[in-house]
Design a binder for these strands. Structure first.
Lengths: 335, 335
DNA sequence: GTGAAAGCGCTAACAC
DNA sequence: GTGTTAGCGCTTTCAC
């Protein structure tokens, strides 16, 4: 493999000079710069990452903390982040964590071991030590899709409560009055979206009946959505619409409704949240709240990069705009 | 950050001894080994990756070549691979490539730059140089989900033709005789699955009519599936079933059928391929051919690791078993 | 403007 | 069994 020394020898210069050219430093005669650049081009020389890492004390790696369940929205988001980070010459390193103390612990251990330059958290870790370590170690961190009021970390996300409220308002505006809520445990956004649901009902002067109309399933998966919706249906109360905290949950709900011999939206309207890839291609298409995926991913990547480079950055939470996407899974209630 | 020297000093030993303990080498007195291990534990010492990389001339990284379009099956597969590789202390590095010569070229350039220890290809690159480089550089590579007869690379995949044949046989056994095929360009598996379709029809003594019954769309996405199915429907011939080369395509097809005011499976049966996450949760559930995702991912990770470690490995293509998963999107034809 | 030299943290060959 | 030493490929003082 061709090294900086080879280039130096070929150019009749010292490695230092080559290094200066490569790193765009000044103090190199233009003609020499040109010679070296040509040589680099010809030989296909690329600096060795490990060597640079060592001397620069940087790994050129950002850690992605993701839940073990890594859902579809998160997967799509990751793709965007990865693409963008690549343009900065940054790698990405996965840290999958389960909803268990030991898993968080072992993730923290790995995080300490891997010298990442920054961290993007797609997952809310429970363990305080996690955040403490990040702060103490001075590792730039970004909370993407959630927030922690009590911390100094930058965060980027939509206004969960408000967008959930708008979702339910859409249902209300269609004439629905008996609206159920399907959410899951583990992530704050599930709580916030449920709060938005409650708020929308209250604003409309409709009583909130958590016992009857709200279900929290164990996970944000279609499987959980199906089970949650079955539970709701088995409670055997009147309902004309259901708001699911994520599209995946909504897909499962639609499935349960279908299994019960009912139709969406004729019998029950279904509304989701996230606007993942397939939502537009379901039959019927899923009405949902779109999170600006690309903007979210690109901003996350840009932000962590700025943080790593110690550029001045506004540390206030970034609230991204959401959009109501109305498709065919919602309609006026029967009668 | 605590280094090997610190441990050595604390233990009153030399760095070499510490290194021997860490790397499980022999020739260290058990009591000294214990002292050092304890120290490592206490201080939370972890060897610096960059430094190890440099001296070992290994990056502890495997490159994942994935298409820019990174579909749902591939994303799920990646998750499995990543999890497994993690247990080996390996990182994963993304190389997204588009279906354009320049993109392949720039990917190759990056591949040369990043000193990956191995490569898992989830994407068939057209450019010969790609494979030539890998061979010339002696970088272990694994073709996952496809194969190249003309190469020496290890590969792992299902028997595409045979499984597609079985899929169509299922349709035939239900009584269908007018079966269309929806595929896409860019990947060999799209061709092979189409061949399987043709073969199954021929075996059943049914004429193959590519002009009329087969559509190749630009991509394996729901969007393409929808468009492809529209094309098929607009051709206005009799059809009672459609076989889509992937589940994503099938989802789009179901959507197009729904948009046309027809029902699945009452009017048209739909069959997919892959068995991605959501397929079981569609309404109706998608009948499909399951690729053994977990086995595929774990074997891929294990195999590339063995290759990297220069363990003896059977280089014959690994053919994984597929399974027919029958759900509700297929039924007997009308009348 | 440019080069010499030191050093980042680790492993391995070679002494002892 | 253990220590000494050199060196992986790079950047960065500090001279000149």
């Amino acid at each position: 493999m061709v090294s900086i020394k080879d280039i130096a020898r070929l150019a009749g210069m010292s490695p230092s000079t080559v290094s200066r050219v490569i790193n765009q430093k000044k103090y190199v005669k233009p003609e020499i710069r040109k010679i070296i650049l040509d040589l680099v081009e010809q030989t296909g020389y690329v600096p060795n990452r490990a060597a640079r890492s060592m001397v620069l004390q940087r790994s050129f790696t950002v850690g992605i903390i993701a839940p073990d369940t890594f859902n579809m929205f998160q997967r799509q988001l990751f793709s965007v982040i990865e693409h963008r980070l690549e343009t900065f010459g940054y790698h990405t390193l996965f840290f999958f964590v389960k909803f268990e103390p030991e898993s968080e612990e072992s993730c923290l251990a790995r995080l300490k071991a891997e010298k990442v330059d920054g961290v993007i958290m797609l997952h809310e870790v429970k363990d305080h030590h996690f955040y403490d370590f990040l702060e103490a170690a001075g590792i730039p961190a970004l909370l993407a899709t959630f927030d922690r009021k009590d911390s100094n970390f930058c965060s980027i996300h939509v206004d969960e409560e408000k967008s959930a409220q708008e979702a339910v308002q859409h249902l209300l505006s269609l004439g629905h009055r008996q609206i159920d809520m399907l959410s899951a445990e583990g992530f704050t956004f599930g709580l916030k979206r449920t709060d938005g649901y409650r708020q929308a009902l209250r604003n409309a002067g409709i009583g909130v009946d958590d016992e009857k109309r709200v279900v929290f399933t164990p996970a944000f998966t279609p499987a959980s959505g199906r089970l949650g919706m079955k539970t709701l249906l088995e409670r055997n109360h009147e309902l004309s619409a259901v708001f699911a905290a994520t599209d995946e949950l909504a897909i499962g709900a639609m499935r349960a409704i279908w299994e019960a011999g009912l139709r969406v939206p004729q019998d029950i309207s279904v509304m989701g949240f996230d606007d993942i890839d397939i939502s537009a291609y379901l039959s019927p298409g899923l009405t949902t709240v779109r999170q600006p995926l690309v903007e979210l991913g690109e901003s996350s990547a840009n932000l962590i990069h700025s943080l790593i480079c110690e550029e001045a950055v506004d540390r206030a939470p970034i609230i991204l705009p959401h959009t109501l996407v109305i498709r065919e899974s919602t309609a006026e209630p029967k009668k």
